[in-house]
Each structure stands twice: as structure tokens, then as C-alpha cells.
Design a binder for these strands. Structure first.
Lengths: 166, 166
DNA sequence: CAGTATTTTCAGAAAATAGTGAAAATCACT
DNA sequence: AGTGATTTTCACTATTTTCTGAAAATACTG
């Protein structure tokens, strides 16, 4: 099987989007490939389609599984492993939000809270403390909203956001 | 002037956060430095504080200005340029949201729309077209919400989001 | 305008990140 | 247990990104 032009462009542009968001480009491309594919793909298909090495394919497939974006499966009578992507866009969003929250936002909150702790009794740092406090509150709020959104059911949130957009 | 330990950690952790989000680490560190500083800083102060070269400092300061996150100013009787950061956290958020929307989300929407265009009359791509359609709608919705949020006034949005969080 | 301070540019160096491919490990089956 | 298929690992290579530092350009001052 070879990809249509449209699928190729899709894989390409999903990959570049991933790169913008600090995600390995190949990882995003594999994800796109599996989204676009109707049936699960083997490591070899992924290698061939994206022209990448086995090591690379393996590593990024594993990483996608860690993120919870794809799953393994198998085909009766075939020893190879096959991979397929979650297709529900909302679930994908929730998964990504949950992971990034955990990996990136929460550590920042911890670190900023430590800074806050250091200056909380220091008179000479009043200005800094105030700015830091505002930042910290903001990040905490964003974190909490993201957490809420990502763990609610889709219908509720979407209807709410639609109102917001009016 | 030398930074307190708290400020140092702040600069450090803001830098790492930036890196997670695809922003040059040094750029984020300079931004943090200027947020934490009570007065505008010259290129030389930035160089010294972060131990970086003039070229690097210059380039990243310029980039921060392009983003609209910092501004130039001058001190009477001094030829040097000085830089200071916007301090309102909400405004900072809006600026960043606007920039990333323009630089990253809108191009993806264009590219995915092109893919859509390519397959819109192709019967054999029905499944792909459907998945693509869902993704595109989702990205468009996210884009539009972000745009809305970033261009509204703070009070309105925050009160709205607070309700969301109940 | 000459002289100096300051900023900008950019070619090459350094560092960080990603990818390769072959060997080792694991697995599934007889 | 032995065999061949498949997956994983990892030392090394390639690529990309970032940084440096000195030269060029620009801006200011008397």
C-alpha cells in the first residue's frame, strides 16, 4: 500500500505541528499515519511508509504507547505486532492534555512554588514576590481548567465553550 | 546586581517551561529575567546575568520584541538601550496566544484544509475524509476559542472560566 | 566630520537532538 | 531445548538548533 497525496500531506503537516509543540516530529508522523490508516500497521509498514529505521520506528511507537495515543494489537496467524490509533478526537485531546499537564505544567508549578517559599518572608523581595504570585496563580488556574476540561465529558464542555464563543 | 537564589531558580524554571513549549530556552530565560527585574536592563546586564554572548543576547532580545513580550526603552544620559517586560500576566498570555495561533495553529488549519480539498470528491477516501473532518473541526474550534479568549477582556473570561470549574 | 559607543550580522563552533543498523534479547512454536 | 521470527537496545553517526565572537554597520557626540 502506498499513501495517497492527501494522506502524505496530512502526515507531513501533523508532524510539523507536533514539532511546534515540542513533540518529536517522527512520533507525530507515526501518529498521523496510524490515524489515517484504516487498519492497524506493523512496524515494517511504518518503517517503509516513513522511510525510517527499525530502531527509530520502534522507539517512537513505544513512546506513543506510553502517551496512551496508540495501542498494540495482533492479527490471528501473524506473529508481528500491529498498532492502531485512538480515533476519537476528543479522547485524543484529553490524553494529550493529561500527559502534558503531568509532564510540563505540574513541574513548573512545583518549581515556582519553591521560589515563592524562598521569598515569602523576605521584605526586600516584595515586588518580585508579587509578580511571582500573579504568575503562579495564573499557571495554577490554567492547569486547573485544563484538568477540568480534560476530565469532563465532551458534550458538557463543548456546549459550555460554544456559549463562551457567542 | 546579582540575582537572589529565588530569582535564579525562577529564571531557570521559566526557561525550562519555554523549552517544553517549543520556545528557545535562552529567550524564555531573558524574558524571566526581565519579568523579575524591577528596572529595565541593558544588553550587557543580560549577557552578564545569564553568561551568554552578545550575539545571542541581541538575537533573543530582538525576538522577544517581535513577539511583543518586551519593549525597548532608554535612560536619559545613557546611550544604551534598555529592555523591560510587560508585567500584566493576562496581557502576556494574550500576546503569546495570539502569536502561537498565528504561527502554528493557522498554518495547520490551512494545510489540513488543503488535504480535505484533495479528497472531497474521492469516494475511496471516505473513511479518511471523515477522520480528517473531525480533526479539522476540532482544531478550528480550539483555534477559535483561543482567539476569542485572547481577545476578550480578562474579567469576563475569568469569571466565565470560574463557573466552568465549579 | 572624526571618533567612539552601541547594535547587528553571520560564518563557523558547539551542543543538543534524532536516527541508524546491527547485535542482543525475547518470543512463539515445534 | 532448538530454531527462526520479531522486538529491543545502544554505540555510533547525522542532522538540526543554538551560541559565539569578531567584523561590519549604525548611531551618537563634540
Amino acid at each position: 500500500m502506498s499513501l495517497t497525496t492527501a494522506k502524505k500531506q496530512f502526515v507531513q503537516s501533523w508532524g510539523e505541528m507536533g514539532a511546534c509543540w515540542g513533540i518529536n516530529k517522527t512520533m507525530a508522523q507515526i501518529h498521523a499515519l496510524l490515524i489515517a490508516s484504516e487498519k492497524p500497521l506493523s512496524t515494517d509498514s511504518v518503517m517503509e511508509e516513513l522511510q525510517i529505521s527499525r530502531g527509530n520506528a520502534n522507539m517512537n511507537l513505544r513512546e506513543l504507547i506510553n502517551w496512551g495515543l496508540i495501542r498494540r494489537t495482533s492479527i490471528p496467524g501473524d506473529r508481528k505486532e500491529y498498532f492502531y490509533s485512538e480515533t476519537d478526537v476528543w479522547k485524543m485531546f484529553c490524553t494529550i492534555a493529561r500527559e502534558r499537564k503531568k509532564r510540563e505544567i505540574e513541574p513548573v508549578i512545583r518549581s515556582l512554588s519553591e521560589c515563592m517559599e524562598m521569598v515569602k518572608d523576605d521584605k526586600s523581595s516584595r515586588d518580585f514576590r508579587e509578580k511571582l504570585g500573579e504568575l503562579l496563580n495564573f499557571v495554577k488556574m490554567a492547569d486547573s481548567i485544563l484538568g477540568k476540561v480534560a476530565s469532563s465529558d465532551k458534550e458538557r464542555i463543548v456546549s459550555f465553550l460554544m456559549k463562551l464563543m457567542k
